[in-house]
Design a protein around this nucleic acid. Structure first.
Lengths: 311, 311
DNA sequence: TATCCTTACGGAATTCGTAAGCATG
DNA sequence: CATGCTTACGAATTCCGTAAGGATA
């Protein structure tokens, strides 16, 4: 049993059982991968993969259990490397953050900027995608940190912290009748075509809930993943926008914003890391910078728990 | 990085940093071990061990953290082997049970016997020792299962289950005056020289507590780890014995027993396994046989949690 | 001085990539 | 027939044990 064999198995499962692809990812030859897997199967005495003739088609039933263990083992192997780099005083490394557009565009810039000043040798990668994929990236180890408002709490493999609260804001073109309605009511809002986030994004859930609770059927004419896109279409007078308050930068030419915290439930942006993973020292610094309410020691303690307490 | 390097480091820490000894345990040469460790330290860029000149004397500060990760990694490696053996349908293997004399002598025989009938190919090892060592053995992976009445609950690394309750029994030679005292009171007992377990063994704690709570100072003339030894000395009329009820087999010649459940707090024998460890299928069977109140699925679920929930 | 770790060296085993062969969809 | 896995083979590397050297308590 060796690490190359284990990596081959893990990668095969991740890359859809295509060993040619696995070989490329692992910078080795395809026959090499083929043998790594065969050798491991032989040593363990178990077929890890289902085969149709010569092609791998999926995991066998035991293979699923074995893969779980292999993943844990390789996580520890990566932890070992990272911990060592920390102990060796290395200030270089990588930090991959999976997050949504709103965070990446409006919230992270300041944090990233100050982080870069503290750790100029760390390469930062912002992986932007949908909340459910953010969780996936962190769980698989492709991202070190996930930041999103939705979709991070449902996973036992993740450890997530609340970071800050925010509320929604209504945006409308200058001179729009809604701007005179004070205080703004949901009924007023429901009169107009609306533009907001795709479902599952950036607090969209709370928007739907608020309208449903009021027995209103809003006319949502356009949805997007992206606050900028929404505001762009508001500017084109296609409707009234509902966006996260962070997305209002005061510079949006003819657009005007109305606080809507009283209409929709407040949102909490969360930061998630993989349970059992070692975070490089600078990653902890990043987290503390992003969520100053978190204690460094509290994060470390929580990370020790490899698994969620049973319900 | 390879497994032999990791094993060398773990074993060096376990064997008091004597590489010659490590080499013997790992069935390899001493220079080999020396190089494994040096290579790993070089690759990780961290000195894992403290050195005085050429000799290893202890773990470095980073080494402590690194060792923790290595231990977790190697546990997963062992899990992988065991899980594979299960999946491969292997009915052979080993089962090491660390336990106290009382369990090994009076409780386990039936269980072991029936287990042997079900799994004739499994080699069973009973490791008999003091409760604190039992925990140690299970934590280090040298034993699969620990069974004891005391000293298993204090370790976050262990997952322990209550198995059965029992109480103490007073034993005295035939014709002893105490046998007429009905019901038996603590005050009566305190009149006589007593023989019971060493402190930390087999519910001794509850005995001390009971006397202390009653403001009595018992005259404990002899202590032993072992119910047989205690009864032997009672037979020699050196005093009155207090032993676990399981140790009364009805065949002890001239000795008579008196229930003492009303005098001392009841005891619960617990069974412990290492968190995060894979238990061979037959080990689960053994546990269920030993503690029929436990559900197989409940054990598996609990084992998934690698770490104790934070306090 | 006895124990213990490191260095040096050479043979053996393993590893790995290329090329060819064969099954699958 | 194009893609994908296996087998075969040879070169290069790595691994590991023996023997000798040097430090420590």
């Amino acid at each position: 049993m060796n690490f190359q064999q284990l990596r081959s198995v893990r990668e095969a499962a991740r890359r859809g059982f295509n060993l040619t692809e696995v070989a490329q990812v692992l910078f080795t030859s395809q026959p090499g991968v083929s043998r790594q897997i065969r050798d491991l199967e032989e040593e363990l005495g178990v077929d890890i993969f289902e085969r149709h003739g010569k092609r791998l088609t999926g995991l066998s039933e035991p293979g699923k259990g074995i893969l779980q263990i292999i993943e844990k083992l390789l996580v520890q192997a990566e932890n070992l490397q990272r911990a060592s780099q920390d102990f060796a005083g290395k200030t270089s490394g990588a930090l991959t953050i999976a997050t949504t557009h709103t965070q990446a565009r409006y919230v992270l810039p300041q944090v990233v900027q100050s982080f870069r000043r503290s750790f100029p040798d760390v390469r930062i990668a912002l992986q932007q995608s949908a909340p459910e994929h953010i969780a996936e990236w962190v769980i698989s180890g492709k991202a070190d940190i996930g930041i999103a408002t939705e979709g991070l709490r449902e996973f036992g493999e993740l450890l997530s912290f609340p970071c800050y609260r925010w509320s929604h804001v209504v945006v409308a073109p200058q001179g729009h009748p809604l701007l005179k309605q004070t205080p703004l009511r949901l009924e007023d809002l429901a009169q107009w075509p609306l533009i907001t986030y795709d479902s599952g994004f950036t607090g969209r859930g709370h928007i739907d809930e608020a309208f449903a609770a009021a027995g209103l059927k809003p006319d949502i004419v356009l949805t997007a993943m992206d606050s900028d896109v929404i505001q762009q279409y508001v500017q084109l007078e296609m409707g009234v926008g509902i966006v996260a308050s962070m997305a209002i930068t005061q510079k949006e030419g003819s657009l005007r914003a109305i606080e809507a915290g009283h209409l929709f439930a407040p949102n909490v942006t969360r930061l998630a890391v993989r349970r059992g993973a070692w975070l490089r020292s600078y990653a902890l610094d990043f987290i503390c910078e992003f969520a100053p309410t978190l204690e460094r020691s509290a994060i470390i303690t929580a990370l020790q728990q490899d698994q969620a307490p049973a319900a």
